[in-house]
Each structure stands twice: as C-alpha cells, then as structure tokens.
Design a binder for these strands. Structure first.
Lengths: 191, 191
DNA sequence: GTCTATAACTCGATAGAC
DNA sequence: GTCTATCGAGTTATAGAC
C-alpha cells in the first residue's frame, strides 16, 4: 500500500474518530497497516497530521475551483456548493472543526487551515463581483456568505438538523437577492 | 485552593493552550496545584473535562439571560451580544470550537455543548417574535442569525480580522432590518 | 516496503504518610 | 487537603532482519 492510499485512509479514520486520542498504533491497525509504515511514509506523528491538513485543504481548493468553473451564476453556485459541503460534512466536518481549533491554538501543522476562510471569501467575492452589484459592499457580503455557510454547517453537525440549516440558507439567499435587486434599481446589470 | 478556583484556572489554561495535548501533570503545575489534587477534586480526567464543559455552558447561559433581560430591542441586543462574545472569544473561542468538535465526535463529556446552539436559537427566536414580524419565517431567521454569529466568530479566530467580521455583521443587520420593513408593509407592529 | 521487537518516555490513576 | 512515590499501561520513535 502506497503513501497516497495510506493518507486517504488516515483522513477517513480521523474524520470518523477524531484526531484527539487516536494513537498511531490504533490508526495503523484500523486502516490495515503497521505503526512502522506510518513512520516510514510520513515521519513523525505531527508530519502525518500536517499531511492530513494539506490533503484536506487541497481537496477543498480543488472542489471550489471546479465549482465556479462549472457554475457561472453565483446563486446556482451557492446552492450547489452547499449540496456538496453538506454531503461531505457528515464525514469530514467534525475533523475540519477540530483541526481549525488546533490552528486557533497555534499548532504549526494545522496552520494551512487558516487559508480556507480567505480562500472561500475570495471565491465568494469574485462571484458577487461577477453578479454586477457594485453598490453592495462586496467584501462584507463575501465574508458574510462564507460565515453563513460555516455557521449553518456548525449548527447542523451539532444538532443534526440538516433541514433547518437548509431553510435558513434559503432565507439568506432570498435576502441577498433582495439586496441585489435594490442595488440594480439605479445600476442595471451588464450581460 | 478550593475546587472552584481550580476549575476557573483550568478553564483559563485550557482556553489558552487547548485540551488536546495538555496532560494532568502539565495542567497541574501550570495552575499551581498537583496532579493529586486534580484527581481529588474532580475524579478522572474526563470528569474534569465534563466540569469544564459545564462551566462554559453555564456561563454562556447566564450571559444570554442577562443580555435579554437588559436589552429589550433585538437589534441593540444583537449588537451588545457580539461585543461580549467577540471580547470573550479571544480567550475562550478556540476552546469552544475544540470542545464542539469533540461533541461532534460523540465524546460524552462534551455533549452539553450541543445545547448551546438550540439555546441561542431559541433566544434569537424570542427576540424576533417580540419584534413583531410575524410574516418572516422566524425559526429560519433565528437559526440564520445564530449561524452568522458562529461563522463570523470562526473566521475572526482563524484570520484575526475582527473589523472585517464586524463589517459583515453590520451588513447582515441592515439586511434583517430591510426584511423587517418589508414585512411591516401589510402588518404594522404592535405597541 | 514490510515485519517484529524494544528502547525511552509520558500518561492516568492510586497508595499511603502527614 | 496536600504531599511524594510509584504502578501499570500506553505512547512515539527507532533498530535491524528480511
């Protein structure tokens, strides 16, 4: 089994069980390898965790890029984004928040996770800009949109009520649409 | 040093350094006690963590109750709430997300943290109801509002940009205000 | 690349004197 | 309530054969 397979399985196991008290022994036997092989392929434990963080961030970036390449309309992209994120969250969501907390505490291996927020904000910003509403404070709207996504994901993972999070997201979408229309009154869209 | 002092200091230390790899030995010597005393007052390590979670949840509930008792206007209460949460977040925010992640992974000692979301949602719901906008889907708005708070807090703790989170919150507030006015067109407020 | 074995250390928890 | 001492288990990391 090569390094890449091992890494994928490690992410999967950590996602299901948390990184907190999963020893290398436990992980190794759970994913069908030995402790020795983990050290052989990844080095120290923290190096493995760094590889996990990088893999998560890389997949996130790939997903995001693919999303906006496929969907031009920002509202459709937003809806499709939630669909993907929510589906994925059942498996990696808890790990994402756990590693983010480690980043907040300054652990070096978790540092790349900090990039996830600005990255999504930038994508949302570009989408808002493309939508042509120049009057709206696009930077604030972008950050707000990303925050809504994270917050509703957080709530869903804690109380399991996906439908409630989706209803809240629909409400937010309609509020943004209203904002859009108001801004278009004196500044019609290009296209 | 009594149990309460110990607990307060433990929360403080965990908040600054994370719970992840803080051993009882490390914690004890950092807060000026012995490992023996931690076991004496709290029992097993997980019992101590449970006490920490309870203390956090209790303080949160107290803050929330005090907030709405003091501020009748929901917009003013929202603003004041952010002021408090943001100030507190620099110290306990990371711990909050870390323990929430543990709750997502099903750790029993962290379970009470799940109540934090519904609790804040209920408070926001009551505030929205008191504001008299019956046409707005109040449950969705309440969950959305709480999610905005959590999401902007999350972003702030990761990138350190408090001003950006506040700008986004101001935008959200104005969007809710617009929603309010629209709903009042055919249903004027009481009082 | 994969295995077994183990060194060196830290952990949670307990014992028992004071 | 507080201390020192220690048990037994579990941890990361490495050694060395194949």
């Amino acid at each position: 089994m090569g390094r890449d397979d091992l890494l994928a399985k490690a992410v999967e196991y950590y996602a299901a069980n948390g990184v907190r008290d999963t020893s290398l022994r436990t992980l190794a036997s759970a994913i069908g390898t030995s402790q020795r092989m983990l050290h052989y392929h990844f080095g120290a434990r923290e190096d493995l965790l760094a590889a996990v963080v990088d893999a998560l961030a890389a997949q996130d970036a790939r997903d995001l890029e693919d999303l906006f390449a496929r969907e031009a309309d920002p509202f459709a992209a937003g809806r499709e984004n939630w669909r993907r994120v929510a589906a994925n969250a059942e498996v990696v969501g808890a790990l994402y928040f756990e590693l983010a907390a480690h980043a907040m505490h300054g652990r070096p291996y978790a540092a790349p996770i900090r990039a996830a927020v600005p990255q999504r904000v930038e994508a949302a910003f570009a989408a808002a800009y493309r939508a042509g509403n120049a009057d709206v404070p696009a930077a604030a709207l972008a950050r707000l949109t990303v925050a809504v996504g994270h917050g509703l994901l957080f709530a869903m993972l804690l109380d399991g009520d996906r439908a409630a999070s989706e209803a809240a997201l629909d409400l937010f979408t309609s509020m943004v649409r209203d904002l859009d229309e108001a801004s278009r009154t004196d500044a019609p869209p290009p296209s």
